[in-house]
Computed example of a mutant assay.
Amino acid sequence: MNEPPAPVTAISTDAVRTWRGLAGTAVLLDGFHALKHAVRFGAQIPVALAGDRAAALRLAEDLAPDLRDPLGALLVEVTDETLRALVPRIHPTGVVALAIRPSRTANLETLARTPRSAPVVMLDNPRNLGNAGAVIRLAAGFGATGVVTTGTLDPWHPTVVRGGAGLHFATAVERLDVADLPPGPLFALDAEGEDIRGLKIPDDAVLAFGSERSGLSGEVRARADHLVSLPMRPQVSSYNLATSVAMALFHWSSASGREFGGMDVRGTDGTDDTELDTDPHV
């Protein structure tokens, strides 16, 4: 297929001007897959740039043929020099975009709505940005209602969005106080809890996971309706946070009879450089 010509300089100039006007408030989508997922899940994307537009569209034909035309309409080609002036580093795919963050009001309405058809994942004072991004990616894959965090970590930090591969737009992601958690029975993951294999996790559950280093806070533990443990070989101290979330969501989805499509085992854009803390306390 012949690629359309690269946009003219005037269009590139307008795109850069738009970027500079939004860079302080918009969500940075770093790489082809982040842009792909954001488009698929309805993100509002005012500007998307590529160092090699034709190469990006060939990637779309290979990995996301359903989005080839929408991405062709979005992507504007700019020089690598321009990209280096706009972003901290150029992604290996040479693709970057800005998206409008979803309304907090709309996300809170989604999280508060009952009955729910899928749990909410709650991270209690997480510390590692990459871990938070990986959890959001998992939650989106399992169709969770949302991911909420407590504490100081911003779940929309660029590093978290990068780890989530643009899938923040596929689920409701917000930071909340413990007192404002969504309704529903609170199942808190803790080594002293009941084995999850003997429990049924309801669709309206809130699944709480403790900080990578200090575990569940006293406030969350006091509010928990159930303390739940994951099966673990003796003398193994812990699982990675994202692994723990995956195990709990898989247990829920298996019991609920959820069906999912095929899995793309490739990492983000052929690479997966998300840094995951390897010693979470859950």
Score class of each variant (00 low, 15 high):
Asn2Thr: 13
Pro7Gly: 12
Pro7Cys: 10
Thr9Leu: 13
Ser12Gln: 12
Asp14Lys: 14
Thr18Tyr: 01
Thr25Gly: 08
Thr25Asn: 10
Val27Ala: 00
Leu28Ala: 11
Leu28Lys: 05
Asp30Thr: 06
Gly31Met: 07
Ala34Arg: 02
Arg40Ala: 12
Gly42Glu: 05
Gly42Val: 03
Gln44Val: 15
Gln44His: 13
Ala50Tyr: 09
Gly51Lys: 08
Arg58Cys: 06
Ala60Ile: 01
Asp62Tyr: 10
Leu63Val: 11
Leu67Phe: 00
Asp69Lys: 10
Gly72Ser: 00
Gly72Asp: 03
Val78Ala: 10
Glu81Thr: 15
Thr82Trp: 13
Leu83Thr: 11
Arg84Ile: 10
Ala85Gly: 15
Leu86Glu: 06
Leu86Thr: 05
Val87Thr: 08
Arg89His: 14
Ile90Trp: 06
His91Thr: 02
Pro92Arg: 04
Thr93Ser: 08
Pro102Trp: 03
Thr105Val: 14
Asn107Cys: 11
Glu109Val: 12
Thr110Ser: 09
Leu111Asp: 00
Ala112Lys: 09
Thr114Cys: 10
Thr114Met: 15
Ser117Ala: 15
Val120Phe: 05
Val120Met: 01
Leu123Tyr: 08
Asp124Ala: 04
Asp124Gln: 04
Asn125Asp: 15
Gly130Thr: 01
Ala132Glu: 08
Ala134Val: 07
Val135Asp: 02
Ala139Thr: 00
Ala139Pro: 03
Ala139Tyr: 02
Ala144Glu: 02
Thr145Trp: 03
Thr145Asp: 02
Thr145Met: 05
Val148Ala: 11
Thr152Trp: 09
Asp154Asn: 13
Asp154Gly: 06
Trp156Ala: 01
Trp156Pro: 00
Thr159Val: 12
Gly164Thr: 02
His168Met: 08
Ala170Trp: 00
Ala172Thr: 00
Leu176Pro: 05
Val178Thr: 13
Val178Tyr: 01
Asp180Lys: 02
Leu181Phe: 08
Phe187Tyr: 14
Gly193Gln: 04
Gly193Asn: 06
Ile196Phe: 06
Gly198Trp: 06
Gly198Lys: 06
Lys200Val: 15
Leu207Pro: 08
Leu207Asn: 07
Gly210Gln: 01
Arg213Gln: 14
Leu216Pro: 01
Glu219Val: 14
Val220Gln: 07
Arg221Thr: 06
Ala224Val: 09
His226Asn: 10
Leu227Tyr: 03
Val228His: 00
Leu230Ala: 10
Ser237Lys: 14
Ser237Ile: 11
Ser238Arg: 11
Asn240Ser: 09
Leu241Lys: 11
Ala242Met: 02
Ser244Lys: 11
Val245Asp: 09
Phe250Val: 03
His251Pro: 07
Ser253Met: 02
Ser254Asn: 13
Ser254Gln: 13
Ala255Ile: 03
Gly257His: 05
Arg258His: 04
Phe260Lys: 02
Asp264Thr: 07
Thr268Gly: 08
Asp279Ile: 13
Asp279Pro: 00
